[in-house]
Structures are given as C-alpha cells and as structure tokens.
C-alpha cells in the first residue's frame, strides 16, 4: 500500500478477525457492539491516514516555510469552551445554576471561536500567494475544533 498505511489496515483486519471470533465464541451483544465500534474507528483512522499520505510520498527534502502563519498562537475561546463543558457537568452535582452559567459561557465562547476560525481562514487566503512552504503549514489553518 502506498504510503505505508498497510500496517493500519492489518490492525483493522486483525480486529475484524478477532471480532468475528468473539461473535462466534461469545455471541454477547454488548461485547460485539463495543468491539464493532472500535474496529470501525480503527479502520476509519487507517483510511484517513492512507488517503492523507500522498503528499508525504512525493519525497525529496522538505522545504521549510519562510512565511509564518499569521494566526494568533493563543485562543481564549478554546479555553473557555473547555471550562464551560467542565462547568456544565460539574453543575450536575453541585447546583443547577452552574449548569446554566456554563451553558451561557459555552454559547459565548463558541461564538468567539467561530470568529477566530473565520479570521484565520481569511488570513490564510491572504497568504496563499506566498512562497511554497511545507505540507504542514500550507494547510495549517484547517484545524477545526469539534
């Protein structure tokens, strides 16, 4: 397999074999169900890595970007999203008001996160004519939460 994703598919295939054995040997719905979920995730992960590995195959010495990503390397919005999720679940045990507080904070911080991502995409369009850079940073802005 091009790009060396073969081991990952071998993993997926072995999981399927073990899943089949589990099904025959135990026939337990919960076991087979969770096992099938995991096998699916691994096979999907392998497929993702296989599809994405063409760029790395071109070979040759990698070039390093002369242009820096023009995205801020901090994100308050992401921190707030994390804390809001924590607050919402914590509120379940501690008091309903924290759930509402966390939910409000989550809405605000998600809005803020969307703005950050939009700005980042805009800045990426701005630098697209810049010099060729590494396979990484050319698409650096694509990272999306969620």
């Amino acid at each position: 397999m091009r790009g060396g994703a073969l081991p990952l598919f071998a993993w997926g295939a072995l999981l399927l074999v073990l899943l089949a054995l589990n099904w025959i040997w135990t026939g337990d719905a919960i076991q087979v169900g969770s096992f099938a979920f995991a096998a699916l995730v691994i096979i999907a992960g392998g497929a993702l890595l296989a599809l994405r590995s063409r760029e790395a195959l071109r070979g040759g010495p990698p070039r390093v970007s002369r242009t820096r990503e023009s995205v801020p390397q901090t994100s308050f919005a992401a921190v707030l999203v994390g804390l809001s999720v924590g607050a919402i679940l914590f509120g379940l045990t501690f008091g309903r008001f924290i759930v509402y507080f966390g939910a409000g904070m989550l809405v605000i911080s998600l809005g803020r996160l969307a703005l950050e991502l939009r700005a980042e995409r805009a800045s990426r369009r701005g630098t697209q004519d810049g010099p060729q850079d590494t396979g990484g940073s050319a698409r650096a802005g694509e990272g999306r939460p969620g």
Partner: peptide, 12 residues
C-alpha cells in the same frame, strides 16, 4: 499525523 507530515515522511 494524518495531515501534517513533512514531504518524504511516509508512514513507514
């Protein structure tokens, strides 16, 4: 690992 490997960095 899926998206950011440098050119030449095949999985193996």
């Amino acid at each position: 690992i899926a998206r950011r490997r440098a050119p030449g960095m095949a999985l193996l």
